[in-house]
Design a binder for these strands. Sequence first.
DNA 1: ACCGCATGTGTACGGTGTCCACATTCAATC
DNA 2: GATTGAATGTGGACACCGTACACATGCGGT
Lengths: 231, 231
Amino acid sequence: MMSKTESKSRRTPAKRAAKGTTRDTFRHGDLRRALLDAAIEMARQGGPQAVVLREATRQAGVVPNAAYRHFANQNDLLAAVRSECIARLAMAIEAEMNSLRPGKDPASYARRSLRAVGTGYLTFALSEPGLFKTAFSVPAPVFETPNPANAGATGLNPFQLLSLALDRMLAAGILKAKDRPGAEFLAWSTVHGMALLMLDGPLRGIDAATAQMFAKRLLDMVERGLGETKQ
Amino acid sequence: MMSKTESKSRRTPAKRAAKGTTRDTFRHGDLRRALLDAAIEMARQGGPQAVVLREATRQAGVVPNAAYRHFANQNDLLAAVRSECIARLAMAIEAEMNSLRPGKDPASYARRSLRAVGTGYLTFALSEPGLFKTAFSVPAPVFETPNPANAGATGLNPFQLLSLALDRMLAAGILKAKDRPGAEFLAWSTVHGMALLMLDGPLRGIDAATAQMFAKRLLDMVERGLGETKQ
DNA sequence: ACCGCATGTGTACGGTGTCCACATTCAATC
DNA sequence: GATTGAATGTGGACACCGTACACATGCGGT
């Protein structure tokens, strides 16, 4: 076993192995995963801009080109990171929804479901700004075709979780059938916009209490405004 | 006059002048403006990512380092572009607001004002996606301290135009005093979020008619939801 | 007429993504 | 079990990028 790791001339795997990190097989156990993890960490601190391919390979103790055996290019790596980010966002929303008890009033449950989606969304955006920004860094045809890689524990992606909440509102009679189609986009817009305003926009650097207050008012607005589109 | 432009050995101003573009004074008329214009054009097609300093100098017919006489660094150049983008956004909103007639009903005028801000915002985002994205590319402490460079023809920046519309609603009595403070951020969030969803998110590539329909429903929601925050 | 400062030039460095040819090793085949 | 071919990692190179430093130039004020 040990002979296997040391059998090769020590020059082959770059110039590490000098420090003897024990793991130094020619076949890296799971380079793809290592690169992805490094890239995710870079995205966490610094956002999409910060995920640089060469640095990921460096952290994995491997030559830059090795990355191209697992990702077509830097954009492909970024796409994989993005998928992970969306999955974590889904999990944050799930966590919020799972803390709900249906109770006896379906209308209340439905409303609380929608708010849970919103607060989960905003909480994640504020607590993991780098990952959140990465999740929405441009060209992600990610929600149209539900992608299992973007899902959380329940298997639902953020969009589907939002749809679920809206379906509950429909079932509870607090959202009219004619207002249901596309309601996702109205709710989503609202919360997504506020997240960005808090991260990069005029609300950047706001204190937690004020942030929560704005979030509340925003969700009030959505809850009240979603129904009854005129004519 | 001609002697002045040609007096130097032709080697000095780089290797252009071979084609004799007539303009070849050592002192470029207004290099800062030329760089900015080039950068803006690059932002228009391609967004903030696409504005590259060296390319701007190339288009201005000048050596890369010349840019550093007018901008501290690439980020400074980008900031200047961003200012321009915000100013143009303000002008798009102004255009929409100026098309309104006060009429006899202040409430109606106020409501139409708010909608004008929203539609101006969305229209600009959809018609100039590159500039719009650039306007909000991260760290812009731009609205807190009203910056004349971000203003449109009226001298108001987008945020101030929105405030104006909300003030009209307050004056007309369709927005309660206690709901007025910070209402900008609720309205802004909504429209900003939808703009991004239409540019990069799940609503990307939507047809104009559907976009307009969503915009209408969104503005209905804001109009109805802004008032009456509970308790 | 001179001189200083603003503006543009030249050269150079480190960093990045990516392409190509090559080396190694694992696994499936004969 | 040895051979061979595909998968994986290496090495070297290229074209970009942003930026720092020393230098050249020419305009404007004394």
